[in-house]
Design a protein around this nucleic acid. Structure first.
Length: 554
RNA sequence: GUCCCCGUAGCUCAGUGGAUAGAGCAACCGCCUCCUAAGCGGUAGGUCGCAGGUUCAACUCCCGCCGGGGACACCA
């Protein structure tokens, strides 16, 4: 699907090429042409700073360079005016009818409008949340649940083949403590000092006993294992159920145990050894990650023969690559930022390109406010907020939207009271309201039997400034999706939707869509109905990328 | 000590090297006898932490400092 920006960029490249042939310019044709939507409407529909870049190497005045390219742009049927402004910006105004043809593009493409091919053929493993199955998912996991899921949708829209993966940390001390805690609760014994003390432990104990009343009669060792395994399965199922209600779905639930049972860890160490980065000191086996920018080397196998967590991590990475993933994305909490260097170094040690094959996103903390005060989160005090509680308080849409709306590398504050409000303070409603509002207009249009449908669409009717502005915003959507995928920043979708909703509301205030009273039905009404339908489609496509509903009525 | 993130309007925050730095809230002033007022329009509010550098152009990139938050293991 060729857009106006692609067309203009191609034409500018052709113009530069001709100017070089004429001898007016020296140098080569740039591979990419800067084209942006100017913030100021007076600067046209598109603006390019290409002349400013070309001027210096060519030894020319930027305005003169712009002048050389002007005629070629003006010759395009889609372009109505080209102006040279300021130091040498080329401001391009599109022919209104040609721009309005975008409505046809959107209504034909429907849910595929916005999709692209930038990541076509790329297999991506997207790992997020990856909680221990030893308790409910809490606020920290919730940010990843929302952002990770949205990122998965965005990457898919960019053409990638995405697998969403949840790494279950089902091995090690924490699991044993978890099992001991549930058993103690079931037997009425005190919970171990370092054990898990939340109320859910008692609930799990009751459930395990109900499932298997004979468990208490088992020998000590066997009984503990049974408690641990039964509670693990129950807790995992609970996490899966909660994520399901949160509209977050995984393709693969990857058990850490399966790595060990399948010999993948040994295989991973062996593979790294073959690459020549493994060495032995003091009886332990190390990976020389300092070869690739880590600040210290890492132990794979302890002197006592135990495998470290790091060995699991490296084995897991190698396992992912052997499953055919080109890019492994890790979404980790701020406390894991030290992992970036060692994961990248691991990739390098395995012979991969750490700049391409591995991508680590670090998320900052979420603070939560309620009743004007910060809610202090403490596992000990039992004041952790779970994903489920958050959803009960504010609903799936508000929770997801708010968590996705901010870049993950900045700390964010969630104000529960605001999220319960149905006002402008709560951006999700602003966007959803625009969708519902359009849906209402379209319902009314159908009732009035106004000819809608593309066969009644005359793009030349759309000449109002508000219509032009709305068309401009709609045209941006594919670029926004591509940018969000490339930069792994789904919040760009949310910000864009807020802008689009605002532009629509402005259009709605100034441009009457349906005929007033006894007014005759004109071509402008049909044209605006189609414009509304196109806007509805883009809002819906955008909300879908965030996993937020697009209500027909509010 | 080393490393990561942050510092933009009174508050919460956007801003991929471009023109006059934006939004919502809070403050003030307007707009519903006709399509959803959960909306729209306007006023006011800024040394983009400080100081250098790169560039035709810096909130944006680089260096240094100040301030805030977080992380360092043969733990898991």
């Amino acid at each position: 699907m060729s857009s106006h920006s692609d067309l203009l960029a191609a034409q500018i490249q052709a113009a530069i090429s001709r100017a070089i042939e004429r001898g007016d310019l020296i140098g080569t044709v740039p591979e990419s042409i800067p084209l942006e939507r100017p913030k100021n409407r007076d600067h046209g529909d598109y603006a390019s700073s290409i002349a400013l870049q070309l001027a210096k190497p060519a030894g020319k005045n930027p305005r003169d360079v712009a002048q050389m390219l002007k005629a070629d742009l003006e010759s395009l049927a889609e372009v109505s005016a080209v102006n040279i402004a300021g130091p040498g910006f080329i401001n391009i105004t599109l022919n209104r009818a040609s721009q309005a043809d975008l409505v046809r593009t959107i209504l034909t493409a429907q849910e595929s409008y916005g999709r692209g091919t930038a990541l076509a053929g790329v297999k991506i493993n997207l790992e997020f949340i990856s909680a221990n199955p030893t308790g409910p998912l809490h606020l920290g996991h919730t940010r990843w649940a929302a952002v990770g899921d949205a990122l998965g949708r965005v990457l898919t829209a960019a053409g990638a083949d995405v697998t969403r993966e949840f790494y279950i940390n089902d091995r090690g001390n924490q699991m044993d403590l978890f099992g001991q805690s549930v058993q103690a609760a079931a037997l009425g014994q005190p919970i171990p000092e370092d054990g898990y003390k939340g109320e859910y432990i008692a609930d799990l104990a009751i459930e395990v006993l109900a499932q298997n009343p004979a468990i208490t009669a088992l020998a000590d060792e066997m009984r503990l294992i049974e408690f641990r395994e039964a509670a693990y399965q129950l807790q995992l199922k609970d996490q899966q159920r909660v994520l399901d209600t949160f509209n977050t779905h995984f393709d693969v639930w990857f058990s850490e145990r399966s790595l060990h049972d399948g010999g993948s860890v040994e295989h991973g160490v062996e593979k790294l050894r073959l690459q020549g980065h493994v060495f032995e000191v003091d009886g332990a086996t190390w990976l020389r990650t300092t070869d690739f920018g880590d600040d210290k080397d890492r132990v794979l196998v302890k002197a006592n023969g135990d495998l470290t967590y790091f060995s699991s991590d490296t084995a897991y990475y190698i396992n992912k690559r052997e499953r055919g993933f080109d890019i492994c994305i890790y979404m980790l909490g701020a406390d894991h930022h030290g992992y970036i260097h060692r994961l990248k170094a691991t990739a390098a040690c395995a012979g991969d390109n750490p700049e391409y094959n591995i991508d680590v996103l670090i998320g900052q903390l979420v603070k939560i406010m309620e009743g004007g005060e910060e809610v202090k989160l403490s596992k000990r005090a039992g004041t952790i907020i779970t994903l489920e509680e958050l959803v009960e308080k504010v609903g799936v849409d508000a929770a997801r939207y708010t968590l996705i709306r901010y870049p993950v590398d900045t700390p964010m504050v969630m104000d529960i009271d605001i999220l319960k409000r149905n006002t402008n303070e709560n951006p999700v409603y602003y966007v959803q309201y625009a969708h519902a509002r359009i849906a209402a207009v379209l319902r009314n249009a159908a009732e009035l039997k106004i000819p809608a449908g593309l066969e009644n669409f005359d793009p030349a009717q759309l000449s109002h400034d508000r219509e032009n502005e709305l068309l401009g915003s709609l045209a941006e959507f594919p670029r926004i999706v591509a940018g969000a995928a490339e930069l792994r920043e789904p919040h760009r979708i949310a910000r864009y939707l807020e802008e689009l909703a605002g532009v629509y509301h402005g259009f709605y205030a100034d441009c009457r869509v349906l005929p007033m009273g006894d007014e005759p039905v004109l071509a402008i009404h049909s044209a605006r109905i189609n414009l509304c339908a196109a806007t509805l489609q883009v809002l819906k496509n955008g909300l879908d990328l965030l996993g937020v509903s697009a209500p027909e009525r509010m």
